[in-house]
Design a protein around this nucleic acid. Structure first.
Length: 547
RNA sequence: GCGCCCAUAGCUCAGUUGGAUAGAGCAGCAGCCUUCUAAGCUGCGGGCCGCAGGUUCGAAUCCUGCUGGGCGCGCCA
């Protein structure tokens, strides 16, 4: 936001010097206060091509720079940086502009008119979500939110498979428990069956609902009944878990439908017509090596069933055909091997895979008291996302899973997560929000009204300027976070923002300050409240007004 | 053996797409509430940015090669 006041003047100066430069001038906010409010390396970037010394060229540039009452002074530093120090008037103008945005602070329109499909969670209905799924859920939903906050029209999609081996195992596992229940304790439990507590729960339901007829059915019929109950139960459980984390999908896409409407078959035929498919050992192979990948892979087994790669390609083709400008996949690191194959296939089918953006997040380790926690304390088996949420709360779940860069292995500290106080980073943000709300409430009680026309020129304290500066950068941060698919940068930004507010609050008395200071500070507090609130909404966590 | 990801303070991690003296939280130590929420703020200590080369005005960041860890490499998903 700040650079909009100075960039045109640099362009004018360059023009005056007869230097052609087409890309945007880079400005950055220096870490160090003594380096001014904004710095540019433009002189260093261009000096070499012009055969000049960076500092000498910077001198020429400054001489050609039109004067402005928004700029206090400009200086050349170090190897050729140009450091710009603004007058406080720039900050007052920015705060005024931010206030004018009302509840749109931090929103951008860079994606206006564009559509995006974000696919995430996508766990098959063979059981409740486990704690490790949490990262996919939180990252996916936050990425979807980021697109929405950048003006894109977003479709949140869940891809699932309710056919095949794993689902049959589910049905068989439930059926075995039903048999145990109805007086057949020796009925064999399937090898690699599902052992969770929930299988018993579903078996209870089946035994109750189908009490009379289950004994009459053939094993196959009974397993099918069990599988259907299992699927329904699991999906309900999954959706309930997601709902409790503030996550709702727009589309549940059934993999099986790709067989029904011929999209899987046509994918094979199209690839075959391009000479990329061959038969060997009774199976159908996809010639990935011809596309530069490491090895050819089976796409239809000798049994006639497809391997997952094939419907995956058909599915991605379908999403691209639906016309989304951007198609985003959120995958765990364990799925990494399939990505290049699927993309190669879709590319071979004639689609521009630049439209596909894949977010691969690394695995999660849960730690408590310095020890790795692998299993649930409650049942000694897998640790469910519900249990995690019950233990630490939905806000903490969402925040902890996105607070680290997706590319790094995440250590989820349960001890820290359960902490309801100052150590917990979510509370730090929420507390800042609640604190601003509190002061606005108090102002109202005292009859001090928020004045949109307040004279802001009295805001000159360094902590006030720093807070405004940070607020002015929110939109750019939201844009960059979306462009790079890096939700954690929002968490970082909000921590800085909360810190800047606490600093301001500590050093600058608001209520009771002499007018026009009181009104100006109150306005600054209110803008901070809305920015903080928007940031928390973007992350999908609560925005408490009292704590 | 091959592919992808990672390596930064005692611990967990940031690092503005290659910038100036590498930052934060936690842990440790020392301070700040008769006034708007102390779930806050201030200060101190703590570093061969895994190792070795290379690219250039300039590298934690880019390239190459090592070392150490994670995830994969199936006619499972």
């Amino acid at each position: 936001m700040m650079q909009q006041y100075i960039e045109p003047q640099f362009l004018t100066a360059l023009e005056k010097l007869g230097v052609e430069y087409c890309s945007a001038i880079q400005f950055s906010v220096p870490r160090q206060g003594s380096h001014g409010h904004l710095a540019t390396n433009i002189a260093m970037m261009l000096a070499k091509g012009l055969g000049k010394q960076p500092r000498a060229f910077a001198e020429e540039l400054l001489a050609a720079l039109p004067s402005s009452d928004l700029v206090q002074h400009v200086e050349i530093a170090g190897p050729g940086f140009i450091n710009i120090t603004f007058t406080d008037a720039v900050y007052h103008q920015m705060l005024r502009d931010l206030h004018g945005m009302a509840d749109d602070i931090g929103r951008s329109q860079v994606g206006r008119g564009k559509t995006v499909n974000v696919e995430y969670v996508s766990a098959n209905p063979t059981g409740p979500l486990h704690a490790g799924h949490g990262r996919n859920c939180a990252v996916g939903d936050t990425v979807a939110n980021l697109f929405a906050w950048n003006g894109y029209q977003v479709t949140r999609e869940y891809y699932f498979n309710n056919a095949g081996n794993q689902m049959n195992k589910l049905g068989e596992s439930i059926y075995a428990r039903v048999q145990h229940r109805i007086g057949n304790p020796d009925y064999p439990f399937p090898e690699d069956g599902y052992h969770g507590e929930y299988i018993h729960t579903i078996a209870d339901i089946v035994a109750e609902v189908h009490a009379s007829e289950i004994g009459q059915m053939t094993e196959d019929e009974a397993c099918t009944v069990c599988r259907k109950h299992g699927e329904r139960w699991c999906f309900e459980a999954i959706k309930k878990t997601l709902g409790s984390l503030n996550i709702q999908h727009d589309v549940y896409f059934n993999e099986d439908s790709l067989y029904g409407d011929g999209k899987v078959a046509s994918t094979v035929e199209e690839l075959r017509s391009k000479g990329l498919v061959y038969e060997k050992d009774g199976a159908t192979w996809f010639a990935l090596t011809q596309l530069g990948n490491q090895q050819d892979k089976v796409i239809v087994k000798s049994t006639g069933e497809a391997t997952y790669r094939l419907p995956d390609m058909a599915y991605h083709r379908d999403k691209l055909q639906r016309g989304y400008d951007v198609v985003v996949d959120i995958f765990g690191a364990d799925h990494i091997a399939t990505v290049p194959d699927v993309l190669a296939g879709v590319r071979a089918l004639g689609f521009d895979t630049d439209r596909v953006r894949v977010v691969i997040h690394q695995m999660v380790t849960f730690v408590e008291n310095g020890e790795v926690v692998k299993f649930s304390k409650r049942n000694g088996k897998s640790f469910t996302l519900d249990e995690l949420r019950d233990e630490v709360g939905a806000d903490v779940v969402r925040f902890f899973f996105i607070m680290r860069a997706v590319g790094t292995h995440l250590e989820f500290d349960l001890g820290l997560a359960k902490e309801e106080g100052d150590k917990n980073p979510v509370f730090y943000l929420q507390y800042a929000h609640a604190r601003v709300c509190s002061i606005l409430r108090k102002a109202q009680e005292r009859g001090v009204a928020l004045n949109a026309d307040a004279d802001l020129s009295c805001l000159v304290h360094p902590k006030e300027i720093e807070l405004i500066s940070l607020l002015s950068r929110m939109k750019a941060n939201v844009e960059r976070s979306c462009e790079n698919l890096e939700p954690h940068t929002i968490a970082e930004y909000l921590r800085d923002l909360a810190g800047a507010y606490h600093n301001f609050y500590h050093d600058c008395r608001i209520l009771g300050a002499e007018e026009p200071l009181e009104s100006a500070r109150l306005l600054l507090a209110d803008v901070t409240r809305r920015a903080m609130r928007n940031g928390l909404l973007l992350l999908g966590v609560g925005t408490p007004e009292r704590m």
